[in-house]
Write a protein that binds this DNA or RNA. Structure first.
Length: 595
RNA sequence: GGGCCUGUAGCUUAAUUGAAUAAAGCAUCUGACUACGGAUCAGAAGAUUCAGGGUUUGAAUCCCUGCAGGCUCACCA
């Protein structure tokens, strides 16, 4: 049975019978812990149609539900709040239907299809903490949509061309001495990143030198020899110069190799990769088409602009006067290509930091101007930056937290703490390694996902490595502990038949409260999808684990003398473990059998 | 300067489609394993929800003003 629907329908019946009225939106909320009951009907809005004061209205509705509904066992009224106590028989029935449904919480597919873009790094340096938030967020949102019955395509756009990679190439050419990942033992993305840093160092010193010679700063930036080399490489690349293309391919190849091991450890994946070098030309064509049909303006110097002043924005350049494309140009091409590749998608989500909100606002308007009706199906999943206790991450000041380093640290710390607790002495090194990976990454992912995406967040390394409290490992631990109970039940030969459950006629408070949470799982995954917010799931999983732990501490399972109750508690524990696992998987977090 | 976002216990966060005495974690203090896993649980203490006005039966939530912080407004990506 579906408790929410039944309850609503009973209340509607009550309102019709009592006041001959209907109320469109019933306000039902969880009952505060200090009062008895689980569901609370807020009666202030209903008072308007009942023509009675809220308290009186609440009493009438409560009394009607008590005598007519068969769901409500008792009620109490506090001010205008009607607190409803659902009978234990109904709770048991709700549980039975969840327990017997192996697909509980999996929403039926209605042929909806969505594309989620995330990650999308530049290829000149390794991934950092900010990318971790991006990747975990995008991956999780994709999983949440899957959980809502959507067909999901995970993609990314790789910014593989442009001045940034040319900078690394220039520095490597000057100082690299043919160093490769193989020759140096350095991971490919880190090696390329090293030369990007090298470029910046040399560039700065060259500027300084020029300035002491009396060159203006702005001119010095252009005249610096290493910058001229990088710009020269960019031009040669666009002219398809063979040597330049070769070097570009080689260095990008190193980066991809490095990224792929980073992605693997993160546990994220992609169905299809788009490369800027393959989409910017389509973007260019589209922009020129826009000029022909009057959507865009070509100025005298040859540059192409879109005028968005009627939308409250500015004019934006789409092609430079020399005909080369800008960032926006390739995003136009990429979007169009994606809707050609996947013509059935209803929605496209871009997981990109909030510093690009303006960019995406403009992009979507441009796509609409080009006549693509799907333009308003594009959504920018904007998230806040990750700050450190010392302030913003700044690559120039060397305060960037590297993704590979951070994951390694988290896993090491997890292993250290696991070994200290000494619960896994019979595990092989291999098993301990897998477990540490699960716990370390679980802690990191949960830490980054529990905060509302749109908010800026603080990453405190000391706090993130905590495995107690409001953390991923806390939830993983709860799961492992339930699994221990289930193993014991198996070893005792306790078998739960569906029919056994209905013999239970009374529940403990902690059981009712956990049941309330399990019952709200489907609502939560819908809410998480509507809001594009894994934080909804993270906090749900935490609440459920916490609630179960309270149950666990206060109520005996194997010492219960009533065999039916014992079986109920085993079954109940199993459902909690399953629900925790499903929720955590939506976050990209695995849960262990033991830890 | 224009636009967008944020401001909640010492710290990190919930609650933001308006609803009851604002909910957790960390840190601090006090308790709980001869019972099913103490990475747990129970309890104490901790809040003028940035400030001031307004709307409402009811405001952390909506509106206005101010303050503080962030992002953005490139022929950069």
């Amino acid at each position: 049975m579906n408790l929410d629907i039944s309850l609503r329908s009973e209340i509607h019946k009550a309102l019709a019978a009592l006041f001959n009225q209907s109320v469109e939106q019933l306000q039902i909320q969880p009952t505060n812990k200090e009062f008895e009951g689980s569901h609370t009907l807020v009666c202030f809005p209903i008072a308007k149609v009942s023509k009675k004061v809220p308290e009186e209205t609440a009493k009438l509705v409560g009394e009607y539900l008590l005598t007519h509904s068969g769901i409500v066992g008792s009620y109490n009224v506090v001010k205008g709040f009607l607190n409803l106590v659902i009978t234990d028989q109904v709770w048991v029935e709700v549980f039975r239907s969840i327990y017997s449904n192996p697909n509980f919480g999996v929403l039926a597919s209605d042929d909806k299809e969505i594309m989620v873009e995330y990650s999308s790094p530049n290829t000149n340096k390794p991934l950092h903490l900010g990318h971790l938030r991006n990747n975990f967020l995008g991956f999780s949102v994709a999983e949440i949509y899957k959980g809502n019955g959507y067909k999901v395509h995970k993609v990314q756009i790789i910014n593989d061309r442009g001045i940034h990679i040319c900078k690394s190439m220039a520095a490597w050419k000057l100082f690299g001495n043919s160093e490769t990942p193989l020759s140096s033992g350095v991971k490919g993305d880190h090696l390329v990143g090293k030369y990007y840093v090298e470029f910046d160092k040399v560039f700065k010193s060259q500027i300084k030198e020029l300035i002491t010679k009396g060159v203006a700063e702005k001119d010095a930036e252009k005249q610096a020899p290493i910058m001229q080399l990088a710009v020269d490489m960019l031009l040669k690349w666009e002219a398809k110069d063979a040597d330049t293309i070769q070097l570009w391919k080689t260095m990008n190849g190193w980066v991809y190799e490095g990224f792929s091991s980073t992605y693997k450890r993160m546990g994220v994946d992609f169905e299809k990769l788009y490369y800027e070098s393959e989409t910017y030309l389509l973007g260019k064509e589209e922009v020129l088409r826009g000029v022909e049909n009057g959507a865009f303006i070509k100025k005298e110097d040859g540059s192409v602009w879109v005028d968005l002043t009627s939308d409250g924005l500015d004019q934006k350049v789409l092609l430079r006067s020399d005909g080369t494309s800008v960032y926006m140009t390739q995003d136009i091409g990429t979007a169009i290509l994606r809707f050609r590749d996947f013509p059935n998608i209803n929605k496209q989500v871009y997981t990109v930091g909030n510093e690009q909100e303006y960019h995406f606002k403009v992009l979507f308007l441009i796509l609409a101007k080009l006549g693509y009706s799907w333009a308003n199906e594009c959504y920018h999943l904007s998230y806040g930056m990750v700050d450190l206790p010392t302030g913003k991450m700044k690559s120039r000041e060397g305060t960037v937290v590297d993704a590979d380093d951070l994951m390694a640290e988290m896993v090491n710390e997890a292993e250290k703490q696991t070994r200290e607790l000494g619960k896994i002495e019979d595990m092989s090194d291999e098993e301990i390694k897998d477990l540490s990976e699960m716990v370390g990454l679980g802690a990191l992912k949960f830490f980054l996902l529990k905060v509302d995406p749109k908010k800026r967040m603080m990453f405190d390394p000391a706090e993130s490595i905590q495995l107690q409290g409001h953390t991923g490992p806390f939830i993983q631990y709860t799961h492992a502990r339930i699994k221990a109970i289930l193993r014991k039940a198996d070893s005792l030969g306790i078998l739960v038949e569906e029919g056994d459950l209905q013999k239970v006629t009374s529940l403990e408070l902690a059981e009712r409260e956990a049941l309330f949470l399990i019952n709200s799982y489907t609502n939560k995954i819908q809410e998480a999808a509507n809001e594009y917010s894994p934080a909804v799931i993270a906090n749900y999983a935490y609440d459920l684990a916490k609630e179960y732990n309270q149950f666990y501490q206060s109520i005996p399972i194997f010492n219960e003398s009533d065999a039916d109750k014992l079986k109920f508690r085993i079954a109940f524990s199993r459902v909690v473990a399953d629900t925790i696992k499903k929720s955590m998987n939506l976050l990209g977090i695995q849960v262990p059998e033991r830890m």
